[in-house]
Amino acid sequence: MIEFVDVALLVLLAITGVTIIRLRNLFAAVMMAGIYSLLSAALFVVMDAVDVAFTEAAVGAGISTVLMLGTLALVGHQEKKPRRPAIVPLFVVLVTGGILVYGTSQMPPFGHADNPIHQHVAPYYLEESEHDIEIPNVVTSVLSSYRGYDTMGETAVVFTAMVGVLLLLARGPLPRRVLLGGEWRTVRPGTTREELRAEAAHALDADGSDGDGSGGTTPGSPGSEDIVGEQGGKHG
């Protein structure tokens, strides 16, 4: 039965993957990517990796779909046709896949008790966690304590992602909500200075430079100059 589920899920994954590649409509592709994440989450559940499945469902199917939709709102829904068939990437992918299949062909069978991963280190976690840390979920004790430092690094990675996105996308100082004439408006602090700088940026743009960075650095973001959610207050 489990084998059947495995095979079915894998086939579905493959179909979804190929579909994503074939789709030219990005909106549909994003949806399919969400499905892909859900399917892999299911696969993780079958493999008894519930924590991973949970994460995959929350991040892959949830947040990242929203973020991708956010991106689509900026860049449009249709993918440009590639100018020439991607022979080299296809070749690279095939070679990589081939090597992976070759390399894993002698790997110990999945889930077998004699596997190296079940012989070394992991048994210690299973046996000692209860006494060392006294919490039942060994995954948590590994993630937060035994290998807590890695988790700290991952937290830093997440933070780095924010810094990177903000560096790239955030324009100028952070937006703020203010009450203007009885209406809530979202404005930037120090707007007057901003206007001055916009002029300077305009002059600089003639030289092909990005000025103060407030110009639309992402291609295809027309009219992105206006301020976030000007009319948002209506609903407040």
Partner: peptide, 21 residues
Amino acid sequence: FVFLEVSSLSAYALIAMGQDR
């Protein structure tokens, strides 16, 4: 690997900060 990601992600962002588009 974890720290490689920290350094790489930040490096991408830093490089993108160049004046040239």
